[in-house]
Nucleic acid binder design. Sequence first.
DNA 1: TGGAGCAGGTAATACGTGTTACTCACGCGC
DNA 2: GCGCGTGAGTAACACGTATTACCTGCTCCA
Lengths: 362, 362
Amino acid sequence: MDEPSPSNLPPRRKRRVTSREVALRAGVSRTTVSLVLNNVPGTKIPEQTRQRVLQAARELGYTPHGAARALVTRKNYLLGFVLCQSTEQVFADAFLPEVLRGVTEVAKPEGYRILVEALENVDQPGAYVQLVREQRIDGLILSGPRSDDWQLAELRHEEFPVVLLGQLPGTDFPFVDVDNVRGARKAVEHLLRLRRYPVALITNAPPHYTSSADRLEGYRQALAAYGLPFDGRLVAYGNFTEESGFEAMERLLEHFPSFRSVFIASDVVAFGALAAIRERGLHVPQDIAVVSFDDTRLARYTSPPLTTVRLPARSLGTRAAEMLLHLVEGKPVPERAILLETELVIRESCGFQEKGGAGRDS
Amino acid sequence: MDEPSPSNLPPRRKRRVTSREVALRAGVSRTTVSLVLNNVPGTKIPEQTRQRVLQAARELGYTPHGAARALVTRKNYLLGFVLCQSTEQVFADAFLPEVLRGVTEVAKPEGYRILVEALENVDQPGAYVQLVREQRIDGLILSGPRSDDWQLAELRHEEFPVVLLGQLPGTDFPFVDVDNVRGARKAVEHLLRLRRYPVALITNAPPHYTSSADRLEGYRQALAAYGLPFDGRLVAYGNFTEESGFEAMERLLEHFPSFRSVFIASDVVAFGALAAIRERGLHVPQDIAVVSFDDTRLARYTSPPLTTVRLPARSLGTRAAEMLLHLVEGKPVPERAILLETELVIRESCGFQEKGGAGRDS
DNA sequence: TGGAGCAGGTAATACGTGTTACTCACGCGC
DNA sequence: GCGCGTGAGTAACACGTATTACCTGCTCCA
């Protein structure tokens, strides 16, 4: 009876229950079934038949076929979330889960699911356009867009709903980003207020990343506000990883060890830098005060706990998703450019003791 | 001419290029277009017409409509990746990016995309079955399955391709998991070898999680192997978070401070525990030796760097994806139960100094 | 008596593809 | 002259839904 299918064929699964069968069982037409199940407004269907249909559907365990529906509706209720960062970077990205959570939090109640995709090699950027070409997704969130992504421009031209997580100067894509300039400025001004100058800088990434450039800009603004000169010898470049932080700090200590504090534009990079400082036999914050950026979940558990600029990861996700949903549904978008505010979280690495004790923030 | 649509309607986008238009342009039938573009084996189409079709498709920028294709093919080339953990847990999950990377690494070359979904509340488990009901996904990876997930059993009944990331005792779902028992055993035996007993235990999670139960079992096995008794007073339960680790360690130090070492079954929990130890004025590893589990990326940057059991996050993803693809494509599955091996990474928190110096592993 | 209007539906078409069954011309052996 | 295989290609159907345009009685009003 139940003949096992030859293993080179996909297993034959049970036939689907279609709306036709529901119609048959309820004694109505397929049209009526559709009208009832989709709650189409403006149609007058008496409560009795409506109930008959609903019951028939329930009894048969009917669920409409997604593809069939998508074919005619031209909606898939699917949003693409594409990570443009290099693998190195995605790997080090401690925020992905939280951003993703923010996105789904907004998308799910509206019935949208999330398709996550990483661009493996930068050579082949924009494999994601196939998704929009095939019309499999209704909208797109692009995290960490690169300016050398030529396929992106094409999407712009087609007016496909896209929201950037991060910025792409020179384009008018709607985006959500962190206010990196102000965040960095706050961090450095905190150090200056504590009179810890000269203050060095280790960036989070190479300078062509806008986040890196912006945080550098914030650093400059803070110096300027305090009437201090900018000294290029006090700047070293990180590259997302702890290792890069370790090396950057080594370089600074080697060539220009006179600084009294450092702003490190990434927690992860800071972890490495702290190790380098320790290895030199120096102490944080006594010898060098440190303020970093991101407020990774573990920033408070380093020794000493990091004073750092909190990045609103979850909000990044929610705001981007909200914006995208507006675009997808053709509603007017209140803001096309959102810069989220940051918050300086003061712990111990900056040498600022609130009550004089070595208290641990709760 | 180009009348702006009223803003309450979705923007009317360009009409799609269909295969019919390609056929028209190439001077053949739609069937031929399909045959050529899908490279259907066994059909004899002369090179000349084949080229005509390909060129027409190229010129028009034709891409087949995903939904239409899915409708008839009954394949979506989409895999579901569902996180069953509580939000708390997902939040703390440092491995998600890496596991995901492993999954996509395998799935992408085969043409499959990944739909990521988190179960928000445990009350409403299995919202994901809708995805399979609607036939929107071809297969499912369930991370951290819960035994109270009644919808899962339903899927089993329908023979839908599912692979678990983690285990669900009492079911015969294919799964990929870490060998938690052996991993924990290795960790504890290392402490015992260093003669650091009594050795306490802080679990990673409440006992009904298999990972927690298994690591506890490994702890017991190690004790047994060394002929030592199991003492329940030396066991405290963590709950995924640093906070829980902090509190668990406080409880241990409060009620039964005589232990000389502790196995903490999660890096994250260990971070909290380390803070608690520090706060008591005790030192690691001098007063208490610590070995933990996971080898989070930051484990080597705590002070002291953590000796910990490395969990092969990426492999979890790749192996699960491989298994799932076999199921989806109806190929026989070599192994239906995979336990991945772990590796003990020795750093400083266990008090074992390789060369006598306070060396930092490179 | 003759519509107008309406409640309660339904037939038919469209969506864009994959695939099976079939046509048609043509050469070829006998 | 006939059957037959074959290369080259097509008509037609299936997939499962949403939606538009239409139909059928019935009531109500002039």
